[in-house]
Computed example of a mutant assay.
Amino acid sequence: MSTIGSGKGMSEKDLLMPPVYDGDILDGYTPHYRQTRKLILLMRVAVPTGHYDEAVALARKLKVYALGNDASAQTYEIVDVKGNPAPLPMLTWEMSMDYWRQFHSVIDHEIAQPRHRFMAGLPNLGGIPKGQAFEPDARMETILTDAAMTGWAIMNVNLFANGHPESLTWPDRNWEFILLIGPLNPETERFRNSQLLGLGLE
C-alpha cells in the first residue's frame, strides 16, 4: 500500500478481502486477500520535516470505511497519545489463565488454515478445543498457568538475552531476528543450524 503499493501513494484505493472470497473485484481497487477474520492495520508515517504534528495530520488523511459507504463514513479515529502511556492490556494477562482464555477465543473465532493444521491441533491436547467450551479443571489450570509463565520466560530470553550467533541478521551488527529460528526458510543451512541450537543438539 501507499508509496510501495500499486498506487504509489497517489489516492490509491485498497480493498481488504474476507477469507475464502472468490467473487468479482470492483474496478479501481487493489485487492488484499487476508486469511483471518480479524485484521490489524499498521501505518508508518514519515514527513520531510520530521515534525510530530505534521505526521499526525497526515495519518488522519487515511480513510477506512466499509465498501459501499462514502469515505466520510470511516470506521476509525486517530487518537493522539503523545505524552501518555500506551495501554497494553496484554501485559495484565500474559502470565495467567487469562492468556489461555484469550487464546481459546482466537481459536474459536478464527478460520483453521490448512498450512497450520498441525499446530492448530495441538491445543486439543491441552483441553482447548475449537468449537467447545473452555472449562479446565484445577489440575489443568495449574499446568496451563505454569506453561504461560514458562513461555513468557523463554520469550524474554530469546528476545533480550539470545546468545546464539544465528540470532544476528548480520555478523558485524546488532540487528537481531526476534525468533531464535532466524530466517523462516527451512532450505537454508542457517535455518537448520538454528533449529539444532534451539533443541540443544549442537
Rank of each mutant, 00 (worst) to 15 (best):
S72N: 09
Q102T: 15
M17R: 09
Q195Y: 04
H104I: 07
R139L: 10
L180R: 03
S96Q: 04
L197M: 07
D53E: 13
K130I: 15
A133V: 08
G5Q: 04
E141C: 15
G9Y: 03
L159D: 05
A138C: 06
H164Q: 08
R190L: 13
R60Q: 14
P31N: 14
S2L: 07
A161V: 04
G198R: 01
Y76Q: 01
G83S: 08
T75C: 09
D22H: 13
M155R: 12
R139F: 10
G68V: 09
D108H: 02
Q132F: 03
F177G: 01
R117F: 04
K130H: 13
W100Y: 14
E135G: 00
S11K: 11
Q195P: 00
G28C: 07
Y33A: 05
P165C: 02
P123H: 07
N185W: 02
T36P: 02
G163F: 00
M1H: 06
R192F: 00
S2N: 12
P48A: 13
D172V: 10
N174A: 12
Y52Q: 05
E135K: 08
Y21M: 10
F118V: 14
M17K: 10
N162Y: 04
G131P: 03
V20A: 12
N124L: 10
M90E: 05
D70E: 12
W170K: 13
E110S: 02
K130V: 14
F160W: 02
D22Q: 13
D137I: 07
V106F: 01
E77R: 09
V64S: 00
P18V: 09
T150A: 15
S194F: 02
G163Q: 04
R34E: 12
G198C: 01
K63E: 02
L41Q: 06
A161S: 13
I143T: 13
D137M: 07
T3Y: 13
M97G: 15
Q113P: 00
M43S: 07
V56M: 07
D98M: 05
Q113R: 09
P85L: 10
G68D: 08
D53P: 01
W93Y: 13
G200T: 08
L144K: 08
I181W: 01
P165W: 05
G182N: 08
V106L: 06
R60W: 00
Y21P: 11
S72A: 14
Y52C: 12
P48H: 04
S6C: 04
N193H: 11
Q113M: 10
K130S: 08
V79S: 03
A112W: 05
I154A: 11
A59F: 01
V56H: 03
V64H: 00
A46V: 15
E94C: 08
I107P: 00
S11D: 13
H164F: 05
M97A: 09
G126T: 05
G131R: 03
R44G: 13
D27E: 15
T188E: 07
G7E: 03
